[in-house]
């Protein structure tokens, strides 16, 4: 699925708990332009259950969520305008 979107930046947030994973996501989002795509890697459990929703509330678009081999999740987010 990553092939569908050009990824401007990627942030590995494995092992980063809530809410610092959201903090790092917001920092990474502030460093890309509207329309560009950020990939975040989130742990299973509270991180994947919370961060994508928070990101949507901030006006960004969650393009996809995919389970990785190690149980973590790759989430693609397009920055809102």
């Amino acid at each position: 699925m990553s092939a569908e979107h050009e990824i401007a930046a990627s942030k590995n947030l494995r092992g980063v708990n809530c809410p610092m994973n959201l903090v790092y996501t917001k920092v990474a989002m502030s460093e890309i332009n509207p329309g560009e795509v950020l990939e975040i890697i989130l742990d299973d459990g509270p991180p994947i259950n919370n961060v994508p929703g928070s990101v949507k509330k901030e006006g960004h678009e969650v393009l996809s969520q995919a389970r990785l081999d190690d149980g973590a999740w790759s989430v693609l987010v397009r920055k809102g305008g």
Partner: peptide, 15 residues
């Protein structure tokens, strides 16, 4: 980032 995290996660504040 940790010190200011509770500000940064507020939508109205942010980075």
């Amino acid at each position: 980032l940790e010190r200011y995290s509770r500000h940064i996660i507020l939508q109205e504040v942010g980075v």
